[in-house]
Write a protein that binds this DNA or RNA. Structure first.
Lengths: 253, 253
DNA sequence: GCGCGGTCTTGATCCCGGTCAAGGCGGGCC
DNA sequence: GGCCCGCCTTGACCGGGATCAAGACCGCGC
């Protein structure tokens, strides 16, 4: 894996920011749009939901959205940019818990401890919708679809965490990671086969519980096998089916 | 780790079954008692909750409470006995997701996929309270404390799953596992330092992502160091503080 | 009693991935 | 321009835990 193309860092991908929506429309990628629109709520409910939303940002790469120990008051939906969450154990080593793309929600694991159990850090310039959680809970009680949606978000993340906990080879983890990223991009309307990795090799390694060197080597091997193309952080999935086969034991369905 | 004492299997520990409760009282270890009683709900709410509960069991060791793919209709609180949940990947290898003691709740990870994503198997004779989930959701909408409690249960399990996903040594995992078990028993009114392991070494190994042989060796080492006493499945924590120190990076607070 | 199967322990060996070390590349700053 | 620093890659080596293999112990059924 030799020459690094400047395109690996520049130009900033044109990652379109989701529009802001209005009284009766949500941001295009909103994590909650599905919960409400699909069920056909009317204007009053929509404005109720809009009332408890606050647009925040931008956060520059490296800035914290919240930190371990901060009191839990709100969950955040990513509008643009990418975020990693990570816990830092008492001897300072960090452990990446997840990466979050536009349309995804962070902060759910703070409900139980009632304060954030991890840090959230922007990996590139990022914008958020901030949902006051007390207000959201109250709304959930009035709108079953919202409650149901929250339950599902939580439950979904639980499933994802369990998978990562399995003992799988470096190849399996890496392949599953790439396929998963692609599918998440695709489901939000971006290209699912060609995108920028917004996180460093080190972060990927940490997330997959591998060494950074191993990530490099596996990526190199995948490239040699024609499964992917990669230059710096610019990634193309050449053989998604092949990757899926390798990572199948970690992938849904 | 040499002689095995028959006590490892027999006599059946006198694991007291939780009482059944009545119109205004819950089973002693009920996972939802706290949600309701602490907030001081009155008779009507309590009977609402009681109405949607159904006592089921006994299930004998090895019997399934639910299987992967079963449609999701209810969550289960353990009244007595122990349960393991595990997913079976397509090539038949199983992965233990968790062990559940009296007072704990299984089935939460089924909300999102809307069918059970794993099997639940009784490790010893077990009894349950079965909560219809649609009814529970409806109740949660009327009783904020119930909704909050469900959110917290989900969020708590999410935290636990993330921890297990870290890369930790066999000693750390094992120590944390033993301490955690002890604390969970203690919090339900059982002895936290002396109890029967209701699962096989193989199940423990699978849960901790180790080989069964490694579990044996670590247990042997812990015994040699005076941290524990163990004969078959009869376990005594001799130096809980020492174990906690070893497993600290996986343990809360 | 005896044999069988399951669970557990113990020892020997192997291998994947971690660690250490060195070097390339690119970007930012003086 | 030149330097430094962070990120990434590549190679050499090492070690923790998996795997393979053998045997102990127990409960059970005949």
């Amino acid at each position: 894996m030799r020459p690094r193309n400047p395109a690996g860092r520049l130009p900033e991908p044109p990652s379109p920011i989701a529009d802001d929506g209005d009284e009766s429309h949500f941001c295009r990628t909103c994590a909650f749009a599905g919960a409400c629109l699909a069920v056909g709520y009317g204007k009053p409910e929509l404005s109720a939901l809009h009332c408890l939303v606050e647009h925040v940002g931008p956060y520059r790469a490296g800035e914290h959205i919240f930190r371990t120990g901060d009191p839990f008051r709100a969950i955040f939906a990513v509008r643009a940019g990418t975020v990693k969450t990570c816990l830092v154990d008492k001897d300072g080593r960090e452990q990446v818990l997840g990466f979050y793309l536009p349309g995804e929600v962070i902060g759910l694991n703070a409900i139980y401890p009632d304060h954030f159990p991890c840090d959230a850090v922007a990996l590139e310039t990022a914008y958020f919708c901030r949902f006051s959680f007390p207000a959201m809970s109250a709304l959930a009680a009035r709108m079953p679809a919202v409650q149901q949606h929250l339950f599902r978000l939580l439950s979904k993340e639980l499933g994802a965490a369990s998978l990562l906990a399995g003992d799988h080879s470096a190849d399996e983890r890496m392949a599953a990671f790439l396929v998963d990223l692609g599918e998440r991009y695709a489901s939000r309307g971006f290209s699912g086969t060609q995108f920028q990795l917004s996180m460093s090799r080190g972060d990927i390694a940490n997330y997959l519980r591998l060494a950074a060197e191993t990530v490099s080597r596996v990526l190199g091997r995948f490239r040699a096998q024609g499964l992917i193309e990669i230059e710096g952080r610019a990634l193309t999935l050449r053989d998604a089916a092949g990757l899926r086969r390798i990572g199948q034991s970690l992938l849904p369905e």
